[in-house]
């Protein structure tokens, strides 16, 4: 990388640290930025700074927000008797896109993973249990990812929540819409049969 001027090398090195950005992509972005209008660069730098300065975790649900508590936790229109538990803040956006769910959220910021050394103390379970101590919450929906770690986390959380007298449910799992049954593997098919509904 010595063939470039030092500031460009520095920029490429910084861009390479971003997830999913390799050496070639970093170089392409760096040269794109070199050709970009100064005003646009200012807007980009400003946006990054604003995220760093204003974004915090909601003190109730751990969602990322610029106002604490977040708009979901303070909204009077939301159903306060249901909490949907997700692994990451972007999972919450996926649920919101459905416009079906009107309850509250809780973000764990991870999933149990013995292989990565992520234990129960490393994800935000404690806050969820504190929220359940009030009689307001009647149901907890576990919407962790449909993989080994997500299932183990859902199991662990359900073991903690059930003794508190709150109904615990898990999102349905099975074949994705628009796919062909021919391509479903046995684990997915097994889950589909387990979670079948009466028509």
């Amino acid at each position: 990388m010595l063939e470039y001027a030092e500031p460009i090398v520095k920029l490429i090195d910084e861009l390479k640290r971003l997830p999913g950005v390799g050496g070639k992509s970093a170089q392409r972005i760096a040269f794109h930025l070199l050709r970009t209008e100064p005003a646009q660069i200012e807007r980009l730098v400003g946006a990054i700074q604003e995220v760093r300065d204003k974004i915090v975790l909601c003190s109730i649900c751990n969602n990322i927000t610029d106002v604490d508590p977040c708009r979901y936790c303070t909204s009077a229109a939301r159903d306060r008797s249901v909490i949907l538990v997700v692994e990451e803040p972007h999972n919450l956006v996926t649920v919101e896109k459905t416009r079906e769910y009107r309850g509250l959220y809780h973000v764990l910021h991870g999933a149990l993973s013995p292989l990565r050394g992520v234990g129960p103390d490393d994800i935000r379970i404690r806050g969820l249990l504190e929220r359940l101590r009030s009689d307001e919450v009647k149901e907890v929906i576990l919407a962790t990812n449909p993989n080994t770690e997500g299932e183990a986390t859902a199991n662990y959380v359900s073991r903690l929540v059930r003794p508190l007298g709150v109904k615990v449910t898990r999102i349905g799992m099975g074949v994705p819409v628009g796919s062909d049954l021919e391509y479903a593997d046995e684990v997915t098919m097994h889950k589909s049969l387990q979670n079948r509904t009466e028509m």
């Binding site: 149990l112 993973s113 013995p114 292989l115 080994t148 299932e151 183990a152 199991n155 662990y156 073991r159 593997d185 046995e186 684990v187 097994h190």
Partner: peptide, 26 residues
Amino acid sequence: AEIVRSHYAQAADSVVAGAAMSYVSD
């Protein structure tokens, strides 16, 4: 890849079995 034998159910249904399998894998 095609499944020969899946241990997903054991790892997913029991937190302890899942952690045990993770240790074995580690």
